[in-house]
C-alpha cells in the first residue's frame, strides 16, 4: 500500500505542469524515502528528474516499493478539479492498475475523489553521475524566466558564459544580436531578500550554448521556487534546478549544442 498527503495540493499540480510539456508519461517510483520520477523529452535532448522527500508530506506510507505509470496530461485533467487550497491525498494498492487522488477543502466541506488508470511504461532509467561543476549560479527564478523568454524572440540559441563577476546570456539571430549580464550581488549587502540576489560560485570560467526552446520549457517550474540554480561545466549538460523548501526538487538537464 502506498499513501501520501500534501497540505498544499497546489504544489503537486504545479509540479505536474512543470513536467507535462516535456515528458508525456513516466513512472513515479515510490519507496520508503519518497517519490522520484525521471523522464526524457521525445528528442532525447533534455532529462527531467523529480525528487520528493517523505518529510515534505504530512502523511507518507510506503510498505513496498511501488511504480505508478502515469500519463501526465490525464493526471493534469484530474488535478484541474482540485481547489487552490485543497489538501491532496494519493493512494495506490501494491498491484493495482489505478491510483486514487483525493482533494479536500480546508474546512473539509468539499471532498473530491478521482481514480486515474495507470500505465505500464517501459522506460530506460539513466544514471546521473556526481559531477563537480565549474560554475554554479543562483538567481531569482523570475529573472531567469524573463531572460529566456525575451531572448528567444531574437534567436533560438543562448550562449551562457560565466566569470567571477557576472553571468552573461548572449543571443544572435536574423535581426541582430544582444546580451544580458547579471552581476554577482555584493556579498556585504545585508539588505533585502536573499532570493533576490545573484550568487556565482566559480571554479573556472565557462561558456556553453543551449537551445532556448528547452530553457523556456524548464521555466514552467518558476512557480515552484523563488530561486533557480544553474550548474555548468565544459562539455556537459546544464542543470537547471528548482528547490521546494522541504519537499524536494525538480532538476532539468539539457545537453549543450556542440561543434560538428
Amino acid at each position: 500500500m502506498f499513501e501520501c498527503a500534501l497540505i498544499q495540493g497546489e504544489l503537486f499540480r504545479k509540479l505536474i505542469a512543470s513536467v507535462q510539456d516535456l515528458v508525456q508519461d513516466g513512472n513515479f517510483m515510490c519507496d520508503a524515502n519518497g517519490i522520484s520520477l525521471q523522464g526524457m523529452d521525445s528528442s532525447h535532448v533534455a532529462l527531467v528528474a523529480l525528487a520528493l522527500k517523505k518529510e515534505g508530506f504530512v502523511e507518507y506510507r510506503c510498505d513496498r516499493d511501488v511504480t505508478l505509470g502515469i500519463n501526465f496530461a490525464n493526471l493534469a485533467k484530474m488535478l484541474k478539479c482540485m481547489g487552490a487550497k485543497d489538501r491532496l491525498s494519493i493512494r495506490a494498492q501494491d498491484e493495482g492498475d489505478s491510483a486514487s487522488f483525493v482533494f479536500e477543502s480546508e474546512d473539509s466541506s468539499r471532498v473530491s475523489n478521482f481514480e486515474l488508470k495507470l500505465m505500464q511504461i517501459d522506460q530506460e532509467q539513466l544514471g546521473v553521475p556526481e559531477t563537480q561543476y565549474k560554475a554554479v549560479i543562483r538567481m531569482p527564478s523570475s529573472e531567469f524566466q524573463r531572460i529566456c523568454k525575451d531572448l528567444s524572440a531574437i534567436g533560438d540559441t543562448v550562449s551562457i558564459s560565466v566569470t567571477k563577476e557576472a553571468v552573461k546570456f548572449s543571443v544572435g539571430g536574423d535581426i541582430g544580436s544582444g546580451d544580458m549580464s547579471l552581476r554577482q550581488s555584493e556579498s556585504g549587502d545585508v539588505d533585502g531578500d536573499d532570493s533576490e540576489k545573484v550568487m556565482i560560485e566559480l571554479e573556472e570560467p565557462v561558456q556553453q550554448n543551449f537551445a532556448l526552446r528547452y530553457l523556456n520549457n524548464f521555466t514552467k517550474a518558476t512557480a515552484l521556487s523563488k530561486t533557480v540554480t544553474l550548474s555548468l561545466g565544459t562539455d556537459m549538460p546544464l542543470v537547471t534546478e528548482y528547490k521546494m523548501d522541504n519537499l524536494g526538487s525538480i532538476r532539468y538537464y539539457l545537453a549543450p549544442k556542440i561543434d560538428e
Binding site: 526524457m40 528528442s43 532525447h44 535532448v45 533534455a46 532529462l47 530506460e124 532509467q125 539513466l126 544514471g127 546521473v128 553521475p129 540559441t157 550554448n209 537551445a211 556537459m236 549538460p237 538537464y253 539539457l254 545537453a255 549543450p256 549544442k257 556542440i258 561543434d259 560538428e260
Partner: peptide
C-alpha cells in the same frame, strides 16, 4: 556550426 547534443551521451544507462 553546432548541432544539438543528445542527453544519453552524458549519462549512464541503468
Amino acid at each position: 556550426s553546432q548541432v544539438q547534443g543528445k542527453i544519453q551521451k552524458y549519462f549512464i544507462k541503468q
